[in-house]
Design a protein around this nucleic acid. Structure first.
Lengths: 226, 226
DNA sequence: CGTCTCCTTGAAAGCGTTCAATTACAGTGG
DNA sequence: CCACTGTAATTGAACGCTTTCAAGGAGACG
């Protein structure tokens, strides 16, 4: 497992923070470690991972530039790993919680509430029934983070997506190509996509049976099943 | 929909709080309502519910005596409803967050962190692959809340369990009887159960493939499939 | 050019859902 | 006291979506 990190001594904007770089795949902290710092993504993408007893992974969240992660108490219930090469800001001032970004006195724990909102997002993603709904919702989520109206970058692997949506990489792959076949998206390699029909995609992500004449999501004929 | 509530004027232990009773099935607040109060369960059980576009429900949590709920910001992303007849304490002091239970200055947002931990629990529950694993994990969760070593009360319906585990009531029911057939639990009506083999149940809940000779969870022969 | 990793695709099997029927039980009114 | 009614839970059978097993393809790197 890669754990190498390069420490850049620098004067952070707030007191007692410093920048650290991690290369793709590196662990920022491990599940079970005592919580000692909170982190902010300066560049790149970070994932939080809960490991199950049999080696199964559950990716609970992805963090982009400006996002805070490591917001927990006691011991980390999930690890944090670099999806891409990343630069993060590490805040050290744990003893005085009033100084911490998440617990700033004036904002009353905004970072914690944000972490809660993110966790709920994950719950609603996993609460969807079909692979089509989950993948569609995930792509819309990615679109919202990347803020480019042309081709949108998918920074994480199919494996990461599968472990986030509680599916297999096969189903994720098959569903993506099915969405292409539906003319809802187009793909330029595995890591870039474009939304062709945002309305239709949103219809799939939220629900497909709210209206009689709306798009049916059970298009099994578009798969190679049977 | 039942929304009747009985207000008992009383002097709460903290400033500006009061007890309210809700009958079984009543709504305590609705999804989309502006967040104005936080609540504490004094007696009974409360569920939080996210409604999907097609009417599908996702139950994110159950709250027992002493639990806080309604910890959100902005507008409620999920409704709160009474699973049983309940008595709750309603805290009114929103403007001064330092007075609120979740944001007490000394404890630095313990209630919010607790809410976050609960959300993560829900994620890990939904992250499990099979119905057997989810139901087993759920029963262990219920055991931990009820603190009775004899028959344990299941306060919520099969429908609630199904919407919490993202399964159908049929699968929940079948899995329960399968667990009875495995001699892991015994049932006394739909709302009471006893754990016969805690070790085996825990093995199913966490994982079933970590050891070769451990119990296999894919006991399809115990179902009526095929 | 071989090897490695990641992604895609195919076919068969498994598991949960859907459709459908039955049972159990509480509440109500005869 | 018993029949009627409505809700909740259980059970059966067939369908279908996802997984599993298996193979092939596409780049990156040496």
């Amino acid at each position: 497992m890669i754990t190498l990190s390069t420490i850049d001594a620098s004067a952070g904007p707030a007191a007692s923070s410093r920048l650290i770089k991690f290369e793709r795949g590196a662990s920022i902290y491990f599940q079970g470690d005592p919580v000692g710092n909170w982190f902010e993504v300066v560049g790149g993408v970070v994932r939080t991972v809960r490991l199950h007893a049999d080696g199964g992974r559950q990716l609970t969240n992805f963090f982009y530039e400006g996002d805070y992660f490591g917001i927990e108490s006691g011991r980390y219930s999930e690890a944090a790993e670099a999806v891409t090469d990343v630069t993060i800001r590490k805040y050290d001032s744990l003893p005085d919680r009033g100084q911490e970004p998440g617990f700033a006195s004036g904002s009353s724990g905004i970072a914690v509430l944000e972490a809660l909102r993110r966790a709920q997002e994950c719950i609603f993603l996993l609460g969807r029934k079909t692979a089509m709904q989950r993948v569609a919702a995930f792509l819309i989520y990615i679109r919202g983070r990347s803020a480019g109206d042309a081709f949108i970058q998918i920074p994480m692997s199919r494996n990461d997506i599968a472990d986030h949506l509680n599916l297999t990489i096969h189903t994720v792959s098959r569903t993506m190509t099915a969405l292409v076949r539906l003319r809802l998206i187009s793909l330029d390699g595995p890591q870039k996509f474009k939304i062709l029909d945002a309305e239709g995609l949103r219809g799939l992500a939220q629900d497909c049976q709210e209206d009689e004449d709306s798009m049916d999501c059970n298009r099994s004929d578009l798969f190679a099943y049977g």
